[in-house]
Design a protein around this nucleic acid. Sequence first.
DNA 1: ATATTGATTGTTCCG
DNA 2: CGGAACAATCAATAT
Length: 159
Amino acid sequence: MKTAKGKGAAKRETLKPVDDGKVGKRKAAGKADKSGSKAKKGKLAKDPNKPKRPPSAFFVFLEEFRKTFKKENPNVKAVSAVGKAGGEKWKSLSAAEKAPYEAKAAKRKAEYQKLINAYNKKQESTADDGDEESEIHDDDDESGQGDDEEEDDDDEDDD
DNA sequence: ATATTGATTGTTCCG
DNA sequence: CGGAACAATCAATAT
């Protein structure tokens, strides 16, 4: 780990491409399932269904960008290349262009909160310790869950 | 053989 | 309020 580069012991990894004044960054954590199903289980399996963080607008944009990028650069094998290129392009986009991505991201976030809600309940369900200020009221369902504003942008591709 | 890193930015949560 | 951690990705690398 860590190719002996770290200064002393801090700084997570993912170092320094451009430290503007941002905060810094760190690295990811654990990857467990991969490679299809052969590996069965690595060992990092913890919670059954933990909702991962919703992709930001940038990620949503990247998903599409990656395809395009690789399509024109099938030789590129570095993920960092797409990341960098995507970052540059991202900044090149106008607010209007980012709008659809942000909208999508917003939706993801809403779903995430919902998942978290369910996830939390599940957790508290098993934990029966004493306190925990969770209102498990389970009243009736929330009302109005079907209102979908935001036009469904299902497919807008006109090729 | 599998976990990890590398790079981007945004989002989200904890102190 | 601020910052640290983590989200996808995929190939290469380290353990």
